[in-house]
Design a protein around this nucleic acid. Structure first.
Lengths: 356, 356
DNA sequence: ATTATTTGCGCAAACGTTTTCGTGTTGAAA
DNA sequence: TTTCAACACGAAAACGTTTGCGCAAATAAT
């Protein structure tokens, strides 16, 4: 087990100084061709690779991006990570992942753990608990320390940073419009409570679509699920709640659900009540995951282009990081110019809606 | 934007030496209570946190684990990551993720990128291309440099390191036995080509189960899918191949598929051919993902306890890392004692098999 | 009053780099 | 021969820590 070779060791072996070795390896003209070749040959022989940590310390940047997400066992988030990793890698960055498990404390701890020099910037999506408590001090502190943040999907206006969001409102609106133009008269929505920003926006899209078609929305057709029931452990409760909803609204002929799980469960319940999909009830979900594609019937859904979001977020972050380099210490950092990128959604039609 | 405060700055402000500050913060008895309190108060006020990179350089360890997996948009792998992250975090480690995309080159590059000091050890699952080429030099080189590796799921005998695998053989065997005891007479298997070790093992389990029940296996009932078709882009091809398989074998009454996708697709095709599940054909899959749970009918499946695998792998790695610390440079590292942990599978019965 | 001991703190090295600035040697120009 | 530039290399600082050791001052023991 030969340990990793360092400049110092090469220097000692070749009886030159450390600086000579360093320069020789970086092809400095300062060093004679003779020495250069000697050093490079030796380095290659012993597989010399500069120590990343030492470089990070010296350069005061790690070439590493920190990702904080609520959950990784989740099609959407893992796709975002894939997008981030893709461009990060392409641009010479690594990716370090922290999971908040939707909990405020873990979010804070994870960020503190990484903010102490381990990374150059964050890409994150806010945990539900944080959104509920509306305590965003950790984001501000991080930004104040000069560490850029890019938020995606679950963002919050209070924080000044780059953001990548999906066009929840219009995505939902178009989905509901699709149901309307497919002939639905009583469209229900299954959504989250309002403090989940994406849920609120999607609900709003639903309402706007109805309004523009001069249809009065009925509160009885709006089911707001407590996010506690989202986890796979509470599938039964979720199902029961939706069942109750169906019992109270026997005339539903269209359902818009703000995520796959709600949509799938709704289809299941609808069938249990003897409805045919899409003949009796048409269903559209949000988030184009594995479930939508493989459900029976396959689910018409609003695709969020999760991977694109990740790629865009990574580009935004890295751009800012490398921009900071150029105008390093321009002090008056020319009025921060943060942007919010909106990723357009796409309605993917499958078998849970009628093909007209 | 106040930048991160360092020991040096505190020292300057308080007009003491850097070492005094460091010692004061670590509650050294060497420093007077007076100074200690002063320093600590100041440090707290300015939110001093030791720089991780500097610590890593000094201690020659990063408290970071590198994960290399073929794919992250995948229920199994993301669950493993969740397990790793869970215990890593609990034990004070971070987790840095690299994706190989099933490609040999990306696997190598990713590992080299991380092996230069960024991490203390690897947890990885081998890419399909690497398995195909059987080129494992990068693993050996890493290990030779003193960086421990823990492999999970897709492992290989040629490499000497800790491993965590699922009991593929027995898991499959019991699944097939379940089909047999449920009355199936013509059980087909849909599996991968043999170079994917897990596919090979699961096929072997299938064969052993039949053999023990004195049933001759028929090669016509064994469908080995080319992994190229695994990706979501080739769903149609996969479906067609399975359709052809069905056409050639009209008497199938039981299917064992080595993953969810194959199982789901098989069910779809079976229905297309007019079969009822589980009445005409019973199906069992492998890997307990979202699809199995939410499919119609829900899929009986062999659960691999992915999260447990991740947790176990992380524990193995960290144990080895911290063990190295104690006997640091014991030189003759007392004949390496690597273990292979087998995670037992569990048959989760749902609606794609008959409840007797 | 002298010596011994404790107390409180700073120096310097080390981790592995990169880079600026010297400096001694060589060869050519004066 | 003297002067000067070019050449080839080394010393040292810096990034931010931790820690063994030395040293002075203050206290205690003789």
């Amino acid at each position: 087990m030969r340990r990793k070779v360092t400049l110092k060791q090469i220097a000692r072996e070749l009886d030159v100084s450390i600086s000579t070795v360093s320069k020789a390896l970086r092809h400095s003209k300062e060093i004679s061709e003779d020495t250069r070749e000697k050093v490079q040959a030796f380095a290659k022989l012993y597989h010399y690779r500069p120590n990343n940590i030492a470089l990070s310390l010296k350069n005061r940047k790690t070439k590493t991006i920190g990702i904080i997400i609520p959950e990784i066992v989740h099609h959407f988030f893992s796709k975002v990570i894939r997008g981030i990793e893709l461009v990060a890698n392409k641009r010479g960055y690594n990716v370090i992942v922290g999971l908040s498990n939707e909990a405020f404390d873990k979010e804070v701890i994870n960020m503190e753990m990484l903010a102490n020099g381990s990374i150059d910037g964050f890409i994150l999506s806010i945990s539900k608990q944080t959104l509920l408590q509306q305590d965003y001090h950790h984001f501000n502190e991080t930004i104040n320390q000069g560490m850029p943040i890019v938020m995606f999907d679950r963002v919050v206006n209070e924080i000044n940073c780059d953001k990548v969001i999906v066009d929840d409102l219009n995505g939902s609106k178009r989905a509901v419009e699709k149901l309307l133009s497919n002939g639905c008269k009583n469209i229900a929505i299954i959504t989250t409570k309002d403090y989940v920003s994406v849920g609120r926006l999607r609900t709003q899209g639903y309402l706007e679509a109805l309004e523009e078609h001069k249809i009065y929305s009925k509160s009885s057709l709006i089911l707001k699920i407590d996010v506690e029931l989202d986890s796979e452990d509470h599938l039964d409760d979720l199902e029961k709640e939706i069942e109750q909803f169906f019992k109270n609204n026997r005339n539903i002929d269209g359902i818009f659900a703000v995520n796959e799980l709600y949509a799938i469960t709704a289809m299941k319940v609808a069938r249990k009540f003897g409805n045919q999909i899409p003949d009796d009830i048409q269903v559209i979900g949000f988030t184009d995951g594995v479930l939508s594609k493989h459900a029976t019937p396959s689910l018409t859904t609003v695709s969020q282009h999760a991977q694109d979001m990740g790629e865009k977020a990574a580009d935004l972050l890295i751009n800012r990081l490398e921009l900071d380099i150029d105008q390093e210490e321009g002090e008056e950092e020319e009025e921060e110019h943060y942007q919010t990128v909106i990723i357009e959604t796409e309605l993917i039609e499958r078998d849970s809606t009628k093909a007209l």
